[in-house]
Each structure stands twice: as structure tokens, then as C-alpha cells.
């Protein structure tokens, strides 16, 4: 059987639409995931026992269960309790909660990697906890966190393909629908793979530039 990519080229705009949905899911789940992650890390490094335990529990559960199961609970499970989420909401929320757990660990490690003397110096000058975190610890932790965060962002963009299982027509599902009508399995899946690679590459290039700029400081 010979390969024929001409059909793909003809249907390319549909795949691009899928890309847009993938980018949309990824963008919002990353944004929300960062909020969960920063919050989680602040709780995880706080001396408040309750906050600390809650953040620990969050990370423990999410890291210890498959993302697919988490998404299925949100989309297929919750309606039984009377909570019905749209596929988009469930997809973004699921990815965000998942990303947030990993980001919590990344930022926690970043904060703890900053020398303890930095907090003490800030405190000894009369700064409160918030001022010390924002002005002194935060900027130093950010620098440490960027490489692992980039990794996590790439994971999230790829994980967004799992959202196809809760009926979101993102890139992978768009491709699958194209296969139903064209039967060009190999051509479609390879094209989908290349599109993911391109999206991630753009992201990696931006991240690389950012990292270099931070390192110069």
C-alpha cells in the first residue's frame, strides 16, 4: 500500500482547528495549573500544619493516580453526584489539577533550594514573610524552577491529547475523525505527531530564550 498525503493536505484546515483547541486547553490548564501549583507550593512550605497536610494530600493523590482516571472521574463520575461539567470544563480542570500537583513539587523544591540565609537576611532587615517571598526568595526560586517547569509544560501539552477521551475535539480526536472518513491511518497519525512536535518546539524555543535571559542576570 502506498502512502498518500494529498488527502491530508486537503483536510489540513480541519487539523489546524484541532491544533487551536489543543492550544486552548493547554493554555488554560497551564494557567490554572500554575495557580494551583504556586498555591500548593506556598502551602507545602508553610509552617501551618493544616495547609501543609492538604497540599501533601493533593500532590500524593494526583501523582499517584493516572491522569486518565482523574479525567474520567471528573467527566463521567461526577454527574452521578449531580455535578455535570461540560467536556471542555472537565478537560481543562482535569489537566490543570494534574499539572498543579507536579508544579507544586517543582516550586516547593525551588523555594527550598534557595539558601536559608536569604530568608534570614530578609527577616533581619524587617521584611515580613510576603515581602521576603516576593522580593527575595521568589526571584531566586523562579530561576531554579524554569527548566523543570518547561518540562512540565511540555508534558501538559502532550497530555492534552487525553482530553480526546472525554469527547473534546482537540488535535488527536480531529485526526481520528479524519481517519474514519479517509482510512489513512498512518498518514493522519504521523501528521498529528508532527503538529504536536511543532507546537512543542515553538514552546521550547521561547523557553530556551527566556532561560538564557534569566541566566544573564
Amino acid at each position: 500500500m502506498s502512502l498518500d498525503y494529498s488527502i491530508i493536505i486537503a483536510k489540513f484546515p480541519i487539523l489546524l482547528e484541532g491544533c487551536l483547541v489543543t492550544l486552548e486547553i493547554s493554555f488554560f490548564s497551564l494557567l490554572l495549573g500554575m495557580v494551583f501549583g504556586i498555591g500548593g507550593a506556598l502551602c507545602r512550605t508553610s509552617s501551618n500544619r493544616l495547609l501543609n497536610s492538604l497540599a501533601f494530600l493533593y500532590v500524593w493523590i494526583i501523582r499517584g493516580t493516572p491522569i486518565m482516571v482523574q479525567l474520567f472521574i471528573l467527566y463521567f463520575g461526577l454527574p452521578q453526584l449531580g455535578i455535570k461539567l461540560s467536556s471542555m470544563t472537565a478537560g481543562i480542570l482535569g489537566l490543570a489539577v494534574n499539572t498543579g500537583a507536579y508544579v507544586t513539587e517543582i516550586i516547593r523544591a525551588g523555594i527550598q533550594a534557595v539558601d536559608k540565609g536569604q530568608m534570614e537576611a530578609a527577616m533581619s532587615l524587617g521584611m515580613n514573610y510576603r515581602q521576603a517571598m516576593v522580593r527575595i526568595i521568589g526571584p531566586q526560586a523562579t530561576k531554579i524552577c524554569i527548566p523543570p517547569l518547561v518540562n512540565q509544560f511540555i508534558m501538559t501539552l502532550k497530555n492534552s491529547s487525553i482530553a480526546s477521551l472525554v469527547t473534546i475535539t482537540e488535535l488527536l480526536r480531529t485526526g481520528e475523525q479524519l481517519i474514519y472518513t479517509t482510512f489513512r491511518t498512518f498518514e493522519v497519525y504521523t501528521t498529528v505527531a508532527v503538529l504536536y512536535l511543532i507546537m512543542n518546539s515553538v514552546f521550547m524555543i521561547i523557553a530556551d530564550k527566556l532561560e538564557k535571559r534569566m541566566a544573564r542576570q
Partner: peptide, 21 residues
């Protein structure tokens, strides 16, 4: 008010603890 107190007490550390950024 520890913050107000600490503004009146300067401290110099063995390891300097300057802000590297």
C-alpha cells in the same frame, strides 16, 4: 511586632547572605 523590632536591630551573618539577584 517583629518586623518593626528587626528594623532597629541590624545583623551581619557569617555567610554574608547578600541577595545574589
Amino acid at each position: 511586632n517583629l518586623c518593626a523590632l528587626r528594623t532597629q536591630i541590624g545583623m551581619v551573618f557569617q555567610r554574608f547572605n547578600l541577595f545574589p539577584h
